[in-house]
C-alpha cells in the first residue's frame, strides 16, 4: 500500500516562500494568481495491508516526524 502525505502550513501562519512564488508568477504574466501557499508532498511505501491500521500508523508518523504540528497540518491518502 502507498500513503500520500501532504504537509501544509496552517492558516494564519505566514508563508514567505509562497508569497515569493506568487510574486514571481505575477511577474511572469500570471496576474490571476493571488495567495500562494507552499507545502510538502511525501510518498511512503507501506508493508501494511489493512487500511485502518495503515492510516493510524501514518498519522503517528506525521505527528512524530513528518509534520511540525505547531505550524503545519497534514492530510493522508492511502492508495493500492
Amino acid at each position: 500500500m502507498k500513503a500520500r502525505v501532504h504537509v501544509t502550513l496552517k492558516t494564519g501562519v505566514l508563508d514567505p516562500q509562497g508569497k515569493a512564488i506568487g510574486h514571481s508568477l505575477n511577474r511572469l504574466g500570471f496576474p490571476e494568481v493571488g495567495d500562494v501557499r507552499q507545502g510538502k508532498y511525501i510518498e511512503l511505501e507501506l508493508a501494511e495491508t489493512d487500511k485502518a491500521k495503515a492510516k493510524q500508523r501514518v498519522e503517528e508518523m506525521c505527528r512524530k516526524l513528518l509534520a511540525n504540528t505547531v505550524i503545519e497540518n497534514y492530510s493522508i491518502e492511502l492508495v493500492g
Partner: peptide
Amino acid sequence: VTEAGLLPGTLMRNAHL
C-alpha cells in the same frame, strides 16, 4: 530542541527568505 518539544514555538524560514 523546539522540534524535540523542550521549548515552546518553532523557527521558520526568515521572512525575507
